[in-house]
Design a protein around this nucleic acid. Structure first.
Length: 594
RNA sequence: GCACCGUUGGUCCAGUGGUAGGACAUUAGCUUCCCAAGCUAAUAGCCCGGGUUCAAUUCCCGGACGGUGCACCA
């Protein structure tokens, strides 16, 4: 999956490596080294800037451990906790609990331990539904993709590590809506780790058991809230709709967000809006747009909560990998937590004008119904109430008839206490819908590295460099004294590095080895600018100067030390190096990059 | 989880039934005024457990980890 040369560089230079090597290693867990952690942090900062700050959203931080009932509500317990048995003959996997339930009178096989299910399979001679081979003796695998843990000592509460950061937002919705003062739409973001006990972690950072998500939960009123689509309407996107994927000669659609929403290719304007925002963001952090697309989920591929879903995918070593998902989750999550949890997961939506409605009500005289119907009295009262809402006219007669358990009961109309009341309603409680852009941070980092990895020749020597966007590069700049034999150079280089650090830049200092070697070290970790202190810079009549070298072109300009921090800051926030060469003296070098 | 292949300094590799060698990198010194230069020296390794053997890094078994394929992937 991951290019061998890149993996080697990542290990050697401190981007990422498999964790716990001293103890044999642990599959599915990676440690980010100094460079990788900085890169990842910068990606997270760029995401926070775009999806939290620029959108006016709010970020929270919730626990990674959550109690079991949360996941009963979210549906994760049911969809994660599958018992699978694999057929030894044809290799098909089947839900062991379903097989047992079908073949026996056991009703809730999922609740049984795997050993008992294995026993049941053997005792009832259950065969593979696909090929008919006996399944006796095959292991029943508990496919619980959530990490379980115990909260508290002894028989404390069972808990799970969250499989997505989203649940931490959903369960706190009753309070979060207060912070939004009850007004839709509003968005809550969270960046943090999520856990899935993957069966087979693979491909470096691509499928991990602990990974970092950056998620936005956008809460909207589906009837009235529209996204600010005009901001991204002209953003060009490469779409791979579901319909094209199923065609033998299916192709991409090159279009704009505005058009794709208008013609229905993208079903939800909100999803379309975030595809546009994401597109611009990916370009900003340095994803190669020729190796990027939005792919719509096929119907059978969608998560249990998703009504429509698009993935952002990047091409890494010839494979398309999912780096973000954009799901329209509807009211699935909030209505489930409303049903399972103690709090209310709705917001009160005020009408433009209060409505006065006539409502038919009943107030049955239970002292009459009780003796008359005995144990059925309460059910009769309920039936009367239902009837009043459905067919108020029925109460105009002398008696009304209601049906309870297939039996018809006659009730005197005046006993029912029927009345029509005028009620003023100022609004209603609605369950917001959720639009969820969900980003995999590690996969984004992997994509940036793969897309930034370049080789060329400098002075006929091959070099490897990472053409990372300055905003996300692990280091902002490196500072070198050209040689260490002159104390004036090392002293000034020390001072320059300290000044840049004081100005908030992440700076490496390196005085070891030849200047060329030091440039290459920085090239390999993607440092965009190298500052070199040379003798020409201090043996001047005027202000001290240093040279600044741009990574990809190896071009240099000479500029005054006093201007350095300001100019570098401008370069890091997006100004082109060419702008610098216009204003300052370029340094003639005979270095050529090819 | 299954199958096949692999695991030797930081990295990439060679090699051996008697505990190992190279390249690159790193560190120190010399040299060095702009792109992996040179010289000298140093640091540093046989994935883990069990078995066979006088002796295992080497052979056998198991495990862990990695790669590839299958399966899985809300």
């Amino acid at each position: 999956m991951a290019d061998a040369a890149l993996v080697e560089l990542a290990k050697r230079r401190g981007f990422f490596f498999g964790s716990n090597g001293a103890y044999g290693g642990t599959a599915g867990f990676y440690t980010f080294g100094p460079q990788g952690a900085a890169l990842k942090r910068n990606v997270e900062s760029a995401w926070r800037d775009r999806f939290t700050l620029q959108e006016g959203n709010r970020e929270i931080e919730s626990p990674t451990v959550m109690p079991e009932p949360v996941f009963e509500a979210s549906g994760h317990l049911e969809t994660f906790d599958d018992m699978l048995v694999e057929c030894g003959e044809c290799g098909d996997s089947h839900r062991a609990d379903h097989l047992v339930e079908d073949a026996t009178d056991v009703e809730d096989a999922e609740a049984l331990p795997a050993e008992e299910v294995e026993t049941l399979i053997r005792d009832h001679e259950i065969a593979c539904p696909a090929c008919g081979s006996p399944l006796a003796g095959r292991d029943v695998e508990d496919f619980n993709l959530m990490f379980a843990t115990d909260i508290g000592p002894g028989d404390g509460q069972r808990g799970y590590l969250r499989p997505e950061t989203a649940q931490g937002i959903f369960v706190e919705f009753p309070r979060l809506k207060e912070y939004a003062r009850g007004n839709l739409p509003f968005g809550i973001t969270q960046i943090g780790p999520a856990y899935r006990n993957e069966i087979a972690p693979r491909g470096g950072l691509l499928r991990l058991r602990e990974f970092t998500q950056a998620e936005l939960e956008q809460f909207i009123d589906p009837e009235t809230d529209d996204p600010p689509l005009e901001r991204v309407t002209d953003v060009e996107v490469r779409l791979y709709p579901a319909a094209e994927q199923t065609k033998p000669d299916g192709d991409y659609r090159h279009t704009t967000v505005g058009e794709a929403v208008a013609d229905g290719t993208i079903g939800s304007p909100w999803v379309g809006y975030y595809l546009g925002v994401a597109m611009e963001w990916y370009e900003r952090i340095g994803v190669d747009l020729n190796r990027f697309r939005f792919r719509q989920h096929l119907a059978g591929e969608r998560a249990h909560y998703a009504a429509d879903c698009w993935d952002a995918e990047s091409e890494v070593d010839g494979d398309w990998i999912e780096i973000a998902g954009f799901a329209y989750r509807g009211d699935y999550d909030l209505s489930k937590h409303d049903a399972y949890g103690d709090d209310t997961f709705t917001v009160f939506k005020r009408y433009d004008e209060p409505k006065t409605v006539e409502r038919a009500t009943v107030d049955p005289d239970m002292s009459v119904l009780g003796p008359a119907f005995g144990g059925d009295a309460a059910a009769v009262a309920d039936a009367l109430e239902t009837l009043a809402e459905r067919d108020p006219e029925a109460f105009a007669a002398e008696t009304v008839a209601v049906e309870v358990d297939g039996e018809t009961h006659e009730v005197d109309a005046d006993v029912a206490g029927f009345a029509v009341e005028e009620v003023t309603e100022t609004g209603e409680h609605i369950t917001p819908h959720v639009v969820e852009p969900s980003f995999g941070v590690g996969r984004t980092v992997q994509t940036l590295l793969a897309h930034a990895y370049e080789t060329d020749e400098v002075d006929d020597e091959e070099r490897t460099y990472l053409s990372l966007a300055p905003e996300v590069a692990p280091r902002d700049a490196a500072v070198f004294p050209l040689v260490t034999s002159d104390e004036r150079l090392t002293a000034l280089a020390d001072r320059v590095a300290a000044d840049l650090r004081a100005a908030g830049l992440a700076v490496s200092y390196d005085d070891s080895g030849s200047i060329g070697r030091r440039y290459r070290r920085q090239d390999e970790v993607g440092t965009p600018f190298c500052v070199t202190v040379d003798r020409d810079g201090i043996e001047t009549d005027g202000a001290e100067t240093v040279t600044v070298r741009e990574r990809d072109s190896a071009a240099q300009v000479r500029l005054p030390v006093d201007e350095l921090a300001g100019e570098l800051t401008r370069l890091l926030s997006g100004e082109s190096f060419e702008a610098l060469t216009d204003r300052y003296e370029t340094v003639e070098t005979d270095v050529e990059t090819n």
